[in-house]
Amino acid sequence: MTAAAREAQFPSWDIVFFGGAFMNVELSRRGFLKATGAGVAATSLGAMGFGAAEAAVAAHVRPLKLANTTETRNTCPYCSVACGIIIYSKGDVRKGERAEVVHIEGDVDHPTNLGTLCPKGAALKDFVQAPTRLTQPRIRKPGSDRFEDVSWDAALDRIARLMKHDRDANFLATNAEGLAVNRWTTTGMLAASATTNETAWTTFKVAKALGIVGFDNQARV
């Protein structure tokens, strides 16, 4: 069964559930879209070997779901299989536009996952648009039972001040023998396990230059 036929059979199911798992490998969804373009006539689909019924469905379903979206290559951020994904968004963020994700599926051209995704990757859109996404810097004061919104400037100034204060008070320039050790043990940092290498390098530079030695990442666990 082709993906289009399957969707015709289960039209109410969000295609997220299928991910790319049922993709026709000869003519991938991605290749299909590329080859046909949006709003394609059913006749040219017929010429590509699609039955009339499938073509009719495709002609309706495709443009509705994914026409006029921007395709972006990305990687599933969960496990280290690192499946390739295609994100379909309304708007093109790389052209400076506002963009919103409308669909995420497996990248059929990716050698590892060949378009498939597992139940985690197949539901990635829900991560991007989770109700518990954070949108605003917040601060919880000592003893308080709530977070309060705070501006970025105020948050960052406060952080820099707290850190400098602690570093100046507790930085160990020399040890008992008088040797230079230049370490800061009273503030520590855990680095993320799903950020990019470029983020990691920035984080590394700042943390090590500050002399933070209590510095680890998820690999420790």
């Binding site: 299989v81 601060i139 799903a194």
Partner: peptide, 20 residues
């Protein structure tokens, strides 16, 4: 004192990840 900073996720970010 807790300061919670909101970050971008993969869909909004750019760069490289190293797989296993």
């Amino acid at each position: 004192e807790v300061i919670q900073l909101p970050t971008r996720c993969f869909a909004e970010d750019e760069g490289s990840l190293t797989n296993s």
